[in-house]
Computed example of a mutant assay.
Amino acid sequence: MLPEGKICFVELKNETGRLSSLQKNKIRELKKLGCDVIVAYSKDDVDRFISCCQEVMAE
Rank of each mutant, 00 (worst) to 15 (best):
Q54Y: 13
L2G: 14
A58Q: 10
V37A: 03
E59D: 14
N14S: 11
F9A: 08
F9I: 09
E15H: 10
A40W: 07
P3L: 15
L22E: 11
G5H: 10
I38P: 01
G34T: 01
V46Y: 09
D36C: 07
C8M: 15
F49I: 06
I50N: 04
R28W: 04
R48V: 12
L12C: 04
N14H: 05
K26M: 07
L30S: 01
E59N: 13
C53A: 12
K13H: 03
R18Y: 05
N25K: 01
N25V: 00
E29L: 04
I38V: 14
G34M: 06
I38Y: 03
Y41L: 03
Y41H: 11
M57W: 08
S42K: 09
K43I: 13
Y41I: 06
P3N: 14
L30W: 05
D47A: 07
N14K: 07
I50C: 06
G17F: 00
A40H: 04
V39N: 03
F9Y: 07
L19I: 01
V56T: 10
E11L: 12
I7T: 15
K6I: 14
R48W: 06
D47Q: 06
G5A: 11
M57K: 13
E15Q: 12
Y41Q: 08
R18S: 05
Y41F: 08
C53F: 01
C53T: 12
E11W: 04
C53E: 10
S42H: 09
D45I: 06
T16D: 11
E29K: 04
L22M: 13
Q23I: 02
F49D: 02
R48T: 12
L22R: 10
I50T: 05
C8G: 15
L30N: 01
L22D: 06
V37S: 02
T16S: 07
V37K: 04
S42F: 08
N14R: 07
A40N: 08
R28M: 03
G34V: 07
M1S: 15
L2K: 12
V56A: 04
K32G: 06
A40T: 09
A40E: 11
V56I: 15
